[in-house]
Simulated scan of single mutants.
Amino acid sequence: MLISGLTLRAARVEAGISMRGMARRIGISYSHLSNVERGDRAATPAVVEAYRRALADKGQVVDTGREDVQRCEMSELLRGAGLLGAVPVLTAVETVRAGLHDAVSVRSRAEWWRQAIADYGASHYLTPPTGLLRDLLTDAALLEKHLAENLAADRQGLLLSAGYLAGVTALTWSNLGERRLARRWWHTAIDAADQSEDPAVQVWVRAWAVMNGPNIGRRSSEILALAQERLGERLAPDSGSCALLGGLAQTQADLGDPAAVTTLQRLAELTERVPGEIAADRGSLFGWPEVRLRYAESYVHTARRDTVAAYAAQDRALELYGTDLPRDRAKMLLHRARCLVVDGDITGGATYATDVLDNLDATVRFESVDASARAVLAVVPPHGRKLAAVCTLRGLLAAT
């Protein structure tokens, strides 16, 4: 049985090898491999054998048997029906555990769910999205059951957790490129947050929906309206309020609104008031470290083509980024590539962006990263669109 290009791509991605990295490993041109993985060329026995040898070094197996081919292709489709098939079994297991917990614990269900949400916030950047999604959907089913039991003492706390849980789930669907599902989960998150009557979750959910908006195809006017739903209220010095101002500033910059600079100033002032434990929380969705302010500054100044201010924000951010946030660091580097193009170095900017994508582990290259790379292409002037470096970047994005 012939192996499809989709199967080869799934195995390569799972091994964490970029397409250019594979081309270098096996001595076959990037463009040829791109055509094979898209299905425009047949995966010949020579190509399959080259992949098999390269992937064996990473512990991956490519076989020609039907069962193994289907298993590889299923890994590509795990985010759909294959994933959902596991949820009922896992939910049943969690229901048993939850029943035992109710019998032995002095904590209320709402208290237990608050801890679970904190754990999800901490694991969002570190856990592969398919694995995270499995856990999120399992817990969503269990939380739905708890809400259906309608215990008045716990209901508001459970609705609060439902808002956060649905928001993290929406972000995870977005990371997998499932825009429609992400948008629907954001609707659920906003409804749950509003029913909870808790201002903090209402702001947090809207903030991340605004930040996530461009990655799931929301119109800028729609994102702006969503941000403004909570701007008339006093903003607390917490991660949700800071994220809301950051998302608003980025949207204003995308719309060409000079108010983006004023919003950045408000964000900087609010960031200074954030409590120490929130400022020190680098890896959680519920933290607001300085580097997130610098990211917002870089985004806004890059979009406004103020490259001097953008480079300054990027320099500071790159001092702060560690190895624990490779995805956000990659997006920052892609801002720099965009600035290079704006400053007239079209080949340099496109090459810089290509190198960022090539050197990024496939396990953390999600839709938001590709969106930042597409923004580099968007500022290439007409006379530069046929340059070799630009065509290479365009082909790299088309292949994914």
Rank of each mutant, 00 (worst) to 15 (best):
M1W: 09
L2D: 15
T7D: 12
T7P: 08
A11E: 07
A15H: 07
G16R: 01
G16Q: 01
I17P: 00
S31V: 05
S34I: 02
E37F: 02
V48N: 01
A50S: 10
K58S: 14
V61T: 13
T64R: 14
R66I: 14
R66H: 12
D68H: 15
S75W: 07
L77F: 11
L78V: 12
L78P: 06
V87F: 05
P88W: 00
V89F: 10
V89R: 12
V93E: 15
T95I: 12
V96P: 01
A98R: 10
A98Q: 15
D102F: 06
D102T: 11
V104T: 06
V106L: 08
S108C: 02
A116Q: 13
I117A: 03
L126G: 13
G131T: 06
L133Q: 05
A141K: 10
A153D: 10
R155H: 09
L160K: 15
G163I: 04
G163F: 01
G163N: 07
S174P: 04
G177Q: 04
R183P: 05
R183L: 11
W186Q: 12
H187L: 15
A189R: 02
A193I: 02
D194M: 07
E197R: 15
V205W: 03
W208G: 04
N212G: 08
P214M: 10
N215H: 15
S221P: 08
L224F: 08
A225M: 14
G232H: 01
G232V: 05
G240Q: 04
S241I: 03
L244E: 00
L244A: 01
L248A: 05
A249C: 11
T251A: 13
T251F: 06
A253I: 02
L255K: 02
P258N: 05
Q265V: 14
R266T: 14
G276D: 12
A280Q: 11
D281A: 05
R282P: 04
G283M: 10
V291C: 11
L293A: 04
R294S: 06
S298A: 15
T302W: 00
A303K: 08
A303N: 07
A309E: 07
A310W: 02
Y311L: 07
D315A: 13
L318A: 09
L325R: 13
P326I: 08
R327H: 11
L333D: 04
H335S: 07
L340S: 10
V341I: 00
D343Y: 03
G348V: 05
G349L: 01
V356W: 01
L357C: 02
L360C: 09
D361R: 07
V364H: 02
R365M: 09
S368R: 12
D370E: 04
V380Y: 03
V380A: 06
P382K: 13
G384L: 01
G384A: 03
